[in-house]
Simulated assay, not measured.
Amino acid sequence: MSPIIFNQNMATYKKKYKPEGKKEQQQVEEMESTTAEVFNTLDETASKSEQWIEKNSKLLFTSLVAIVVIFLGYLAYSTYVVAPNELEASNELAFPRKYFDEASTAGSGIDSLLTLGLEGADGKYGFIDIAKVYSGTDAGNLANYYAGVSYLQMKQYDKAIEYLGKFDSDDEMLGPVALGAMGDAFADINQPKDALEYYTKAANKRDNNLTTPLFLYKAAQTAMELKEFSKAASLFTKIKENYASSEQGRDIEKFINAAKYAAE
């Protein structure tokens, strides 16, 4: 805003109000002085802003161009690199999953099927290679899950923990199941404290009537093993109060009583 406009504002202000008496005249003069100072300050600020913009216009334009270039680069990367890579990884995952699914229903030879799924065959990637080559994709992340569960079934617990630890998902089922599988692996290598930690995480990951009571129950049983009876009673009670209709909710009262009795 220019000084001319400020002066017009001051003139308008003077016309609108005519003071009566010296006291009021003094008050008006003080108000006019304050208003003038405000207008002058605003004028100086506006001038300085204009000068700064004028002085840094080249820098501002360069920054704007850089932002646009970055955005367009990200868009191009997502469209022409990430999306095709994601599709390719998803297609690769179909081969080892076939063996993983066969192993889940096979009566024998399970380890050989799981190994084919892990290592691949006939020039096709297995879960291990997909997790490595397509790291950062959804399919690569999922390959870590399948690899971890495969190693768990083969009783190679350290590798199971390694791959399951790389998997991350907020999926209603896979998220809790992966954490619960880590709990199983720690339980099988006789590390109950770690098992309890992961069973608890699995129970809290998602709230549903399938995985939550299952892992609450496993956590409670592990707490009993660790002689943390009060914690066990609390976990069993949570099943009774919130998941009474689940499979774990059946006869839960006897487990609560056993934990409470042991805690006394």
Score class of each variant (00 low, 15 high):
Leu113Asn: 06
Lys193Met: 12
Tyr217Asn: 15
Thr212Asn: 07
Ser33Leu: 10
Phe127Tyr: 03
Ser47Glu: 13
Leu226Lys: 04
Lys159Val: 03
Gly123Lys: 11
Ser230Ala: 13
Lys193Cys: 03
Ala181Phe: 08
Lys227Thr: 05
Tyr80Pro: 01
Ala11Asn: 14
Gln51Ser: 12
Leu116Ser: 12
Ala160Gln: 09
Phe6Tyr: 14
Gln248Trp: 10
Tyr125Arg: 13
Tyr146Met: 08
Leu72Trp: 12
Gln8Gly: 02
Glu88Gly: 02
Lys260Ala: 10
Thr212Trp: 05
Gln153Phe: 00
Tyr134Cys: 05
Glu50Asp: 15
Ser234Trp: 02
Asp171Gln: 08
Ala139Trp: 01
Phe39Gln: 14
Met1His: 14
Ser112Phe: 03
Ile161Thr: 00
Lys155Gln: 06
Phe71Tyr: 08
Gly249Tyr: 10
Glu172Asn: 08
Phe61Asp: 05
Ala94Glu: 09
Asp168Arg: 15
Trp52Lys: 08
Asn56Ala: 05
Gln221Asn: 15
Ala187Met: 06
Tyr151Ala: 01
Gly183Met: 02
Leu75Trp: 07
Phe186Met: 14
Val82Phe: 15
Leu152Gln: 01
Tyr163Lys: 05
Asp170Cys: 00
Asp251Cys: 03
Leu118Ser: 06
Met1Ser: 11
Gln26Asn: 15
Val149Ile: 08
Glu29Met: 04
Gly183Ile: 12
Asn204Tyr: 09
Gln221Val: 12
Glu228Val: 02
Arg97Gly: 07
Gln26Cys: 02
Asn7Met: 12
Ser135Asn: 10
Gly175Ala: 02
